[in-house]
């Protein structure tokens, strides 16, 4: 019988701790699949963030080095400069990358560090219990925006990916999501392209992935998936934000 679905080689035999309907496990799986397909598992090093996905090293079966909160791009820079032939990625949440680690991220992009950054945007601080993130939508309820995020008090959400597209060293920035089979396939393509850009030595790439957080959004998983389509993409439209790499084989 032909086997059509199995655990990717670079996903450990572990049960995900993530909440029901969370996007992390899907994204972990996609990264593991792409690493296997590109045959780069033996030279890939991942940098997990502080946040829910810090435990990514319990699932991804590649070398992993944990960074302090927000400093993924700086730690990845150190790894990549010492090991230029290796594939280095950082995996960061919205608070990690777009609040506390903004400076490290912008400067890594501007230097054109040849790394891949996976930016998981779930519009809240998940691990700490659902506080306002830099990417929380206007009007969105969180534990620190009890009446909904207000521009006058809390500022509008930050468009980090668009800001990174201005950086001279960034090559490829795309915003995707993982709320449907179709969008998951599209995200996988984007991850593949990011790694290929790095393998070709072209520079900094980042995939922003809108990811459901049903528990902190206080929604059922299906409802959360729908909310991305109905609300989140109005603020964070799905698109290729920058691509100077063109077609890559």
């Amino acid at each position: 019988m032909k086997k059509v679905f199995q655990r990717p080689r670079y996903l450990k035999k572990a049960v995900f701790h993530y909440c029901p309907g969370c996007g992390h496990s899907i994204i972990h799986r996609l990264i593991a699949e792409v690493i296997e397909e590109l045959n780069i598992g033996e030279k890939t090093i991942g940098v997990p963030p502080a946040g829910c996905a810090v435990l990514a090293y319990d699932y991804l079966d590649v070398d992993m080095g944990e960074a302090p909160h927000g400093r993924g791009a700086a730690v990845a820079t150190g790894l990549k400069r010492v090991l230029p032939d290796h594939i280095i990625f950082s995996y960061q949440g919205d608070g990690d990358i777009a609040a506390i680690g903004t400076a490290e991220t912008i400067h890594a992009a501007n230097r054109g560090e040849n790394i891949s950054v996976f930016f998981i945007n779930n519009a809240c601080y998940g691990m700490t219990g659902g506080q306002m993130a830099p990417t929380t939508l206007l009007g969105q309820e969180s534990t620190t925006t009890p009446g909904g995020r207000r521009k006058d008090r809390d500022a509008a959400p930050i468009d980090l990916s668009e800001m990174l597209a201005i950086a001279r060293g960034s090559v490829y920035i795309e915003r995707t999501t993982v709320n449907s089979p179709k969008s998951i396939r599209k995200t996988k393509k984007a991850i593949t392209k990011s790694f290929k850009i790095q393998m070709a030595g072209l520079g900094f790439s980042l995939i922003e992935i809108l990811s459901p957080c049903p528990v902190n959004w206080k929604m059922a998983p299906v409802e959360a998936a729908r909310w991305i389509d109905d609300e989140m993409i109005k603020t964070f439209p799905l698109k290729v934000i920058k691509d100077t790499a063109g077609k890559i084989d």
């Binding site: 090093i45 940098v47 080095g65 960074a67 302090p68 400093r71 700086a74 730690v75 990845a76 820079t77 150190g78 790894l79 990549k80 400069r81 010492v82 090991l83 400076a103 490290e104 912008i106 400067h107």
Partner: peptide, 26 residues
């Protein structure tokens, strides 16, 4: 050899963390 003028002291020490993980004397 690698020299990086970092964007901050914080970035610099974190780059050193990465370089040290990779085995370099940093």
């Amino acid at each position: 050899g690698t020299f990086v003028q970092a964007e901050s002291e914080i970035a610099a020490i974190n780059m050193v963390i990465g370089a040290s993980m990779a085995g370099a004397r940093a």
